[in-house]
Design a protein around this nucleic acid. Sequence first.
DNA 1: CCTGCCTTCCTAAACGATTAGGGTGATGCT
DNA 2: AGCATCACCCTAATCGTTTAGGAAGGCAGG
Lengths: 351, 351
Amino acid sequence: MARKPTLRDVSRAAGLSVYTVSRALSNGDDVSAASRALVLKVARELGYVPNRAAQELRKNTRSSVAVVTASTSNYYYIDLMKGIQRTLRLSDRTAIVADIAAEGVYTPELEDATIQDLIQSRTAGVIATLTLAPHNMKLLEDWDIPVVFVDSIPHESATRVPSITTDNFSASMKVGAHLGEHRYSDWLFLVYPARWSTRAERERGIRAAALKYGADIEVLESENDVESAYATLTAYLDAPGRALPRAIIAGNNPMLHGALRVLRARGVRIPDEVAVVAFDEFAWAELLDPPLTVLNEDSETIGVIAAQTLTRIVDDQIKAELRGDPSTPVYRPEDRRQLSSDLVVRRSCGC
Amino acid sequence: MARKPTLRDVSRAAGLSVYTVSRALSNGDDVSAASRALVLKVARELGYVPNRAAQELRKNTRSSVAVVTASTSNYYYIDLMKGIQRTLRLSDRTAIVADIAAEGVYTPELEDATIQDLIQSRTAGVIATLTLAPHNMKLLEDWDIPVVFVDSIPHESATRVPSITTDNFSASMKVGAHLGEHRYSDWLFLVYPARWSTRAERERGIRAAALKYGADIEVLESENDVESAYATLTAYLDAPGRALPRAIIAGNNPMLHGALRVLRARGVRIPDEVAVVAFDEFAWAELLDPPLTVLNEDSETIGVIAAQTLTRIVDDQIKAELRGDPSTPVYRPEDRRQLSSDLVVRRSCGC
DNA sequence: CCTGCCTTCCTAAACGATTAGGGTGATGCT
DNA sequence: AGCATCACCCTAATCGTTTAGGAAGGCAGG
């Protein structure tokens, strides 16, 4: 198109002022039925589409929400996004995904750059899947950008910030209890670093369960990807005089994948020699060999609730601003939610 | 923060004009070293962050690229996004994901609304994973927004629009040839609808291979999700007098998932009774029972190339605009690329 | 006829950045 | 001295919207 039509073009073509055109298009009053019809007709003919940058600048509003993540290759992420997108659509907002792991590895520099970028675009709000650096939380707070954590918790200094997680402690207890009932007495917990904040509660739950059932528990930490998990577990098992554990608990999908690869490489039979259970349900679990017993945390629902919470906070901000009140986001205590989860029992646990 | 600092605030605090401040911050010349240092210091102290809406409005630039998809739950999508994000980051652009399938089902209305939304935000460009309706292509063209298709092709009216796909015909021939060499003579191709444009070439390749190896080929179409695939295949096999095919070719991940579930439910042994091969490699394929023979199409590379192509087109547009030329996107013939792919041979084919 | 009150529309000022065009001294050259 | 050149900085217009603050006309009631 030679020149993209603007409001002014429509106004000229319709013989009305930009004011009237603007009002007509935004369904405001102050416009006669005849004018409105004319404006709509002309706008359609010209193919007018409002410029959102201009709207946002003038109205001081923003329409997109950022999802900050470092684990787009984790499968639970797909369901999470599904829930988020579905919910945001209801309030005409869009999600933008900001992955702060370049080539699969998290870097603090990228986190900083990303946050800077989000502030530049004056994002309406942030949904974070991992704990953000305190100075970045400060930055977002300064700019009145609300944050909601999913499956992760904020830095301890920000205890008011909402967070939607599974009740990881209870979940881990469930996992542990199941192993305990099988009378396995020697567990290995293969887990990602504490930067992903679910780690702490999951470990606490597993340890509590081990204590309760009188099992030995070893916690083995690996970087959060399949290759690292494979290497770490292999090195662990290769240590002199080390015997196979009776049960392996995989902290998430990459840990599970690495562990299964190790067991297969060594020809270890599941669950006869080693039982396996894992956190985070995924589509193929039912078809693996053997079908996997997995903790299902319903990430789609988590996504929905997170998006609802954020939407509410943002809407409250807008209302406050209209009243002339400061637009600092207001967090409610009930925005901190822990969802329960189920153990999907299949075959890998020995059932 | 009470009031967010603007360029004017910085200029006042530094005792310089907005012009000088703007130049200093954007690394332009026309500014003394002393002033620049002062400006940077003041800007940092005030916590100034430029407002991108204002920048984009004034400079008539845009910084985000939209990925239009209807299959976020397909696993290849993860790798695709990885490639796209990684590439866009190099030119300081961000990807926004626009899913035009609500609740997993594609709707034309949502496609229209999404395109409208993209034009409102004056997206720099679009990467589409499925064929878009002709009137929407027209709209994007009117607004000079370039489009690149990945793993899909544009509507026949838009033959110049770039498209990065695997060479699906050759790929299917490879799949078929492998089955042919196993001397299987009775194939079933379980496949998604033609709305996903890879369907046509994949079917053509499979048929060609069947002809070449003298095999019988049946094409069974299902909606593009696991449940539908399961239902469709079950209904097919339950028809009176129907025998099991010797080999099943699954058109993509959801088809494969549905098929495997059916075979498991019926206690069919793979590959002894029925061999299975599938399109689209995915992480768990090596761990399934049995490990799956799969066509690997390297979606990450596809993502990278698509993003590079789009970036180049957009950059050309910007240059043209600076020269005063029309900013219609220019597509080159070599932007239509077909990538080769490998068959990852594991066990499910009978090897 | 005057007044008040709608309804409908307009003018012009924002929003926060970029930048064309112009000004001011200092410096160097003839 | 006179003049050109340069480095540095400023004023003000501009991008495409929204909206406060009228203004004009019509109508009803006194």
